[in-house]
Structures are given as structure tokens and as C-alpha cells.
Simulated scan of single mutants.
Amino acid sequence: MLRSEVLFIGGRSGVGKSTAAEALHDLLVAADVRHVVIEGDALDLAHPAPHVEHPEAHLAERNLATMWARYRELGHHRLVYTNTSSVLLQDVLAAAMGDEPLVTAVLLRAGDAATADRLRRRSGGRLPVAQSEHSTRTAGRLDTAVRGDVARVDTDDLTPEDVARRLASLTGWLSPRPDVD
């Protein structure tokens, strides 16, 4: 069985994580590269928030473990995982996968103007001040807290396809990797 590989894509709200993952998916499909895309936000999205009400439950990690095991049974070994703080939790998330994956972690970054514009488009033209301020605080926290081995990609002037090509380059998934495959 091939060794698992995971690409963790993190970054503030509005930086383009989901859009970049979709563009990477399209790029990998075009090259016929087997892979899985999981939106980490959906693994514990509930009200009340499980991580607040029951932090000991580790619901996102448990759900990832279950989902990844099913994909592995089907022969997949490459995972694209998006979540704001995935780049801070890469060790915990990789451990949840259960098979010591080769990890690539990327922090997507963008300035306040670019993210505000993206968030405005996503919300239909209106951007709540609290959402904008939260995104800015998160950007600062992520940029200072990520480890040195986390790649940083500035997305301000890049198309989603440009970001996807950079992500593909960082993982090497479009090139043969004899040490992994």
C-alpha cells in the first residue's frame, strides 16, 4: 500500500482555501491523479459547537480518521484538507489519519483589502465588521504561530488556478515521486 500524503491548506477567512482546493482538484483530475478533498470545517460543524461544548470529544479528528480509513480502503493515498487552523494542528490531524502520512502544510495569506473583497462577494455584497476584524486577527495569529516548515503563499494577485499550481508544485503530486509511489 502506498504511503499516505496530505496537504493541509490553512489561512484566514477569505484567503481562498476552498477555492484553491477546488482549483487543485480540477488540476489533479485533469492529470488523472487520485486524491481526496475534505473541507475540515464540515467535520464538526454543528450547534452547539462540539469543540466548545465537548472539547474532549475531538470530533473533527475522529471524523477525519473514519473518513480517511474509508478512502484508504478504496485505494486513495493523497488528501487535500482545508481548514483555517489546519496548519497549526498538522501533527494532530496527521495522527488522526492513522498511517503516518507525508505532510505538506501551506498557509495561504492575503491582505485585508483582498480578503474583504472576497468575503463581500461570498456574502452577497455586505461584509459584517466583526467578520472582517476576526479574519484580520486570525491572519496575524496564524502568521506568527505556524512552524517554520509551513510554506506560505500570498494569494492577493493570484488566480485560484495560480494558487493550485503552486500547491501542486509544493506536494510534487504532478511529478513522479519514486520514494513515495
Rank of each mutant, 00 (worst) to 15 (best):
T19I: 00
V163T: 14
A20Y: 10
G11F: 14
H58N: 03
A110V: 01
L170C: 04
V33A: 13
D117V: 01
T104D: 06
N83F: 01
P101A: 02
D117Q: 08
P160H: 02
N83S: 04
G140N: 09
T155E: 13
V163Y: 05
G111E: 08
L107R: 06
T19L: 04
L93R: 06
E5M: 03
R3P: 02
P160I: 01
L174H: 12
A69G: 09
T144I: 04
E73C: 11
E22F: 12
R34D: 14
R3K: 09
V129I: 09
V163C: 06
Y71R: 06
T138H: 08
A145I: 02
A46K: 05
W68P: 07
V52Q: 14
S4F: 11
R72K: 10
A113T: 13
S132I: 00
V106F: 03
R120E: 15
S18T: 12
S85M: 04
A94G: 01
P128A: 10
A23P: 05
L174N: 14
V80M: 12
L142G: 04
R34G: 12
L2N: 13
A69S: 13
T115K: 00
F8E: 06
A114C: 12
R121P: 03
A60F: 10
L28Q: 12
R165S: 00
A57Y: 03
D181H: 05
R165Q: 02
V52W: 15
T159G: 06
D91R: 14
G125M: 03
G11H: 11
W68L: 06
V6N: 11
P50Q: 12
H25W: 10
G14Q: 00
R118N: 14
V92L: 10
D117S: 08
V80K: 10
